[in-house]
Write a protein that binds this DNA or RNA. Structure first.
Lengths: 228, 228
DNA sequence: CTACTTTTGTGCTCTAAAACATAATTATAG
DNA sequence: CTATAATTATGTTTTAGAGCACAAAAGTAG
């Protein structure tokens, strides 16, 4: 990957910078590849780099009580992640892993902090991004605690379409998740994810072929998601 | 309240500013009083001011499906709130109300935005605050979805002590919540809050006298909260 | 003081979802 | 290719917690 290709991808971080600042950043970043299911960072680790997902798919998750895992959010290209803990001066409270082979660009956080101090537009980018994410987190708390299983699964399916899009047929989700990941995303047990998914298929809301999920009746899915 | 007293209170916003910037802010802020249970803003409202709670207690909450309410976070003096939606360029996704008579200082967000653009320390204050809040939201999501009722209630009681402190006896919570608010804070029905609370009393973890709650065995409460 | 509303407390019932059990199918490794 | 593990599928049981009913207590208003 050339520096040019990369600077295309990391636009939001890159654009606000002066030539000098870009030179500094260009000298310091590294690119790292992760295999399917490889862990990127763990809960309790000390954050050192901001990460930008160049290609692939990444989950941010948290292991809770009794071996259950909650997927907190999912990252798609070209999003930034892994910086919250550093700004809060904490260790990571979540973990991150790659769903699929992923390429990640890493910038040392101390450089980013320096650039933020010099460059107000960059500061504002982070303020906005954090604000958006906090709003999503608040919404999600209520969805996950109050909606019923069907509502939560419908929401998850629609979210996956929104985030990662569909294949050429316009309806097959581009992300292939295991039933377990789908369960961890929508706060239910794996067996309930399997059961509810096949109920949705029986009701002709979706079709399933292994991990391929095709959304057939989005309107009704939306309704199910909404009423909970 | 004199400007001096106020500038004491709103330190985090005030300190980073230059004389000129302080003058601007001093000209523009307003003070507003809210009665017990009065609504401060609603979901769907357009945000215009950042608020700083000078005295009193405020809840940020969200009404979900089927008439259930979730308390998302609680504000104590002297904390800032109500700014997230503006930064994200959204309407409020939550509502806010006063638990008790509260005094709130309001600054127009367009002034704050201007000050942020000029003053990098102020930008960094918001980056840090948002980062901390996002971490709390992530933790909370997992607690609320995975812990059992007893764990969630124990967590809520400990949180209330942490946030609002205790009275002179060193163990009575300074905040007097209705059972319903306690339920909405810990994601359960009112009857389960009542029941679980009186179980805790029977087990000598707490004593209850109306809305006065005294924490007796904090260690065990912590254990109950931890194991879920 | 009396009437009315809201909050708290307790018992009982019901149900959504977890837990468990067991196949069948599909990957993965040796 | 075979053995082993992981994932998916389905049926059954169990249970945590919601829902409902009702009474007592405490606020609030007229």
């Amino acid at each position: 990957m050339t520096l040019n290709e990369i600077s295309e991808s990391i636009a939001e971080l890159w654009h606000p910078l002066s030539e000098e600042q870009r030179a500094l950043l260009a000298k310091e970043f590294t690119i790292q590849r992760f295999r399917k299911n490889e862990i990127i960072y763990c809960e309790g680790d000390r954050p050192t780099h901001i990460m930008c997902l160049l290609s692939g798919k990444v989950k941010i998750y948290k292991d809770g009580v009794g071996g259950r895992t909650q997927i907190i959010r999912m990252i798609k290209p070209v999003e930034y992640f892994a910086y919250r803990a550093y700004f809060a001066n904490e260790e990571y409270v979540t973990a991150a892993a790659a769903f699929e082979p992923s390429v990640i660009c890493m910038f040392p956080m101390n450089i980013i902090t320096k650039l933020i101090a010099e460059n107000n537009q960059l500061a504002q980018f982070f303020i906005k991004q954090l604000s958006i994410d906090l709003g999503i987190a608040d919404e999600r708390t209520v969805s996950l605690t109050q909606k019923h299983i069907r509502g939560r699964l419908a929401e998850a399916l629609l979210f996956l379409k929104e985030s990662y899009g569909v294949e050429e047929d316009e309806s097959t989700l581009s992300i292939y998740l295991s039933r377990e990941d789908l369960a961890n995303l929508s706060n239910m047990t794996t067996s309930n994810a399997i059961r509810t998914l096949s109920n949705f298929a029986t009701e002709k809301l979706i079709t399933i072929d292994g991990r391929k999920i095709k959304l057939i009746d989005e309107d009704r899915l939306r309704k199910i998601s909404k009423i909970g």
